[in-house]
Computed example of a mutant assay.
Amino acid sequence: MECRRKILVVDDEPHNIMLLEGILTKLGHEVVGAENAVVALEKLDRTYDLVLSDVMMPVMNGFEFVEKIRENTETQDIPVIMVTTLSQKGDRLKAVEIGANDFITKPIDIVELRVRTESMLRQKAQQDEIKSFESDLNELVESRTLELREALSKLDEAHVETIHHLCAAAEYKDEETADHLVRMAEYSRILAEKSGLDVDTVQLIHTSSPMHDIGKIGIPDSILLKPGKLTAEEWEVMKSHAVIGGNILSMGSSEYINMGSVIALSHHEKWDGSGYPSGLSGEDIPLPGRICAVADVFDALTSKRPYKEPFSVEKSLEIMKEGRGIHFDPKLIDLFFENIEQILYIKESCAD
């Protein structure tokens, strides 16, 4: 044999153990004897390459012994040769059914013993090689998966960073602050979570919601920063920021950019259909847009704008309640008030 193998010999007759041990040792193997199946089970572990077992033994017979070997995940792949005087076909079939791999008939023929043991040991070596290959492959897959996750994480971070820069470009023209974007994103996250959305969608809305007004980058400063009330013509120009934002973001392939496009286009729609740019109503308005509408309006009410001073929290909440079923999705505005403590905590902790 090419290498030394470890073999367990189980027999209640000591001279049979000595006989097999002498032959197998000369063939270059390490042999361990056991006087019965119970002792053998105590000794047997994954370091063994082959088991030779008698069938007719006290305490536990060979059939029961093989069943125990196959039940143990650590030893179930070790090949077993039954060394037996049994010649009945039914006995041999039973041995095969419970997991025996081969047979050697007593009295033992040395040539047969060598051929059958070498055959089983070759099979065991091939099994070990396959297992080793599978283990190495699993390690490689885990390593590559980790590398891929790290790469995707960096790509994800790059997308988020791009979004932040994109939003900063819009802020540059508007008097809305970075804190407004943080608050609005956090309000949106709370409403998305409480709506029962899955973790990934909540994160997507949270990350993409700051792009809601990205289209304001295309609105003239004379309108965007006007301190007084807009004329009807100016208001139509101002409303176009939703379409501008949707169009800008529709050119991206990132899931964040795509979600940002949905939000930009739909966060000014109203539940009763009186919003813009498409006059959508009810559940025809995408849920992310409905969520961001609640978040954006509350922050707008409680924040300073070129055309207004901030309203008090009490006044703002009163206006929000009046918008239930008119401006806002009734279920979402109810969730907003059910979680008002979290909302107000974010407002105070992220103040301009």
Rank of each mutant, 00 (worst) to 15 (best):
T145L: 10
Q127K: 10
T162W: 12
L148M: 14
T177H: 08
K106E: 13
F103M: 05
I163V: 15
L166Q: 07
D136C: 06
R116L: 05
V115C: 09
E147Q: 13
S195Y: 03
S132F: 07
E150A: 07
D136T: 06
T162A: 13
D198C: 04
N138S: 01
Q127E: 14
L181N: 04
P107T: 11
T177W: 08
L166C: 11
N101G: 02
R183F: 09
E150T: 12
K154V: 03
M120E: 15
D174H: 07
S132N: 11
H180S: 02
A185R: 10
E175N: 11
L155V: 05
V182A: 05
A192D: 01
C167W: 12
P107Q: 09
T162D: 14
Y187L: 04
D156V: 02
L191R: 03
D102H: 07
L155F: 11
S143G: 04
E175C: 08
E118D: 15
L181A: 07
E176Q: 08
E175K: 06
E171F: 05
I163C: 06
E186H: 06
S188Y: 02
I190H: 01
V199H: 11
F103Q: 05
S143M: 10
A151D: 02
T105H: 12
E150P: 00
N138V: 04
D102Y: 09
R114Q: 15
L121W: 09
E147M: 12
K154I: 02
I108A: 02
A125Q: 14
E134Y: 09
S119R: 14
D198E: 05
T117D: 01
E157H: 08
S153H: 12
